[in-house]
């Protein structure tokens, strides 16, 4: 069965046009907000604002927050371990893109 939902859907670019509150980011990642709070306290995510109720996360953190949540839950890593894995994954990404540029 096919259906087109109409008339048409307004889409916004998450990375440039959106900010998340703590509950919004929790919903977007499919996890409890306490898990995100622990990632903030570990320095994995850096929101604007002092108190969790005032926190605003840049839209660009979404992929990182989702990856962090998956690593925490699926690999049963601690928060510090998750932070370390994320940094290593970032480094691998950087090296891979340098390698691509090097190879042309």
């Amino acid at each position: 069965m096919n259906f087109v939902e109409g008339p048409f859907t307004h889409a916004v670019i998450v990375e440039t046009d959106l900010q998340f509150s703590l509950p919004e980011l929790g919903r977007a990642c499919g996890v409890e907000v306490t898990l995100l709070e622990s990632l903030v306290h570990e320095g994995v995510l850096t929101p604007h604002g002092d108190h969790p109720t005032q926190w605003r996360f840049e839209g660009s953190v979404l992929p990182r927050a989702r990856t962090a949540a998956r690593l925490l839950l699926d690999l049963e890593l601690g928060v510090a371990g998750t932070a370390l894995v994320l940094e290593l994954l970032d480094e691998i990404d950087t090296l891979k893109s340098q390698l691509r540029r090097f190879r042309g």
């Binding site: 859907t9 307004h10 889409a11 998450v14 979404l62």
Partner: peptide, 15 residues
């Protein structure tokens, strides 16, 4: 039916 914003980059997300 989605409006693709002009200039969206590879790897970015739409909501």
């Amino acid at each position: 039916d989605v409006n693709i914003p002009k200039g969206i980059r590879d790897g970015q997300h739409l909501r």
